[in-house]
């Protein structure tokens, strides 16, 4: 939706992929064909697709610029750009300490952000339920880029030391039953009490929508930047569109 908003604010109009789906993908048309057809209809293509690498395929067949709005469990670059932008509104990106909290195994926004922050000499602190840790392959890749990664048992252990607390959703379907989900989810919940030792300038981010990960009482604290982050999605996506059109 924020891409649609960005396009509208730039004075453009958008054709929805949803309707494309109904008329062609459903008939078994390949993505390559869809992209070739849509290339004739639009000045740029924004693609979100369940298969990894779909955006690269699209870029190969398109005659107009392609923006990846998320492909499968792969990259989520537009979210990462707006995350970086939101952090930079509060502090310099260089050398920050950031805590990634929640489902770090399947949470692609966390993967993309971690990769991007490896360019800024950031220190990574990970806090995740058992079985939902940052994938070992990604950890190895980040370590190779010189990133320091420390695993912690709870947010409490690092809350006083970090500049950014990046919270991701823990999905219920990752757990065998709702009781174990609630147990885990509540132990990772961000509350005003938990944040009381935080640095004054520390910020809390979340790619939204949230479920129970952040107590609503946090919303009024100066640390809460997740609605700001969500709002930043529009100007950042406007900038991306302008960039590819030039």
């Amino acid at each position: 939706m924020s891409f649609e908003s960005a396009i509208a604010r730039l004075g453009g109009t958008s054709l929805s992929v949803g309707s494309m789906e109904a008329c062609s993908i459903a008939k078994g048309e390949t993505l390559a064909d869809t992209i070739r057809v849509v290339s004739g209809y639009a000045d740029a293509i924004v693609i979100r697709h369940p298969k990894e690498g779909a955006a690269r395929l699209a870029a190969q067949f398109a005659t107009v610029p392609v923006i990846n709005a998320g492909d499968g469990a792969g990259q989520h670059p537009s979210q990462t750009l707006l995350d970086l932008y939101t952090i930079r509104q509060s502090m310099k990106l260089d050398g920050i300490h950031i805590a990634l909290v929640g489902d770090l195994r399947y949470g692609r926004t966390a993967h993309s952000l971690a990769s991007a922050l490896s360019l800024y000499d950031a220190r990574l602190h990970t806090i995740s339920p058992k079985g939902l840790e940052l994938p070992a392959s990604l950890q190895a890749e980040l370590a190779e880029k010189g990133m320091q990664i420390t695993e912690h048992d709870s947010v409490k252990d690092v809350v006083a030391d970090v500049d950014v607390i990046y919270v991701t959703r823990i999905q219920r379907e990752r757990f065998p039953d709702s009781a174990s989900y609630f147990n885990v989810a509540s132990s990772y919940r961000i509350t005003p009490e938990l944040l009381s030792p935080a640095k004054k300038h520390a910020i809390v981010l979340h790619p939204l929508p949230r479920v129970d990960e952040i107590d609503p009482r946090v919303d009024t604290l100066p640390h809460a930047k997740y609605f700001e982050q969500s709002k930043n999605g529009v100007p950042v996506r406007m900038a991306m569109l302008l960039q590819v059109m030039q």
Binding site: T30, E52, D71
Partner: peptide, 13 residues
Amino acid sequence: PNPGCITNTNEPI
């Protein structure tokens, strides 16, 4: 080997 990879579909690549 990634089952979710776009190359493991009927795309012409």
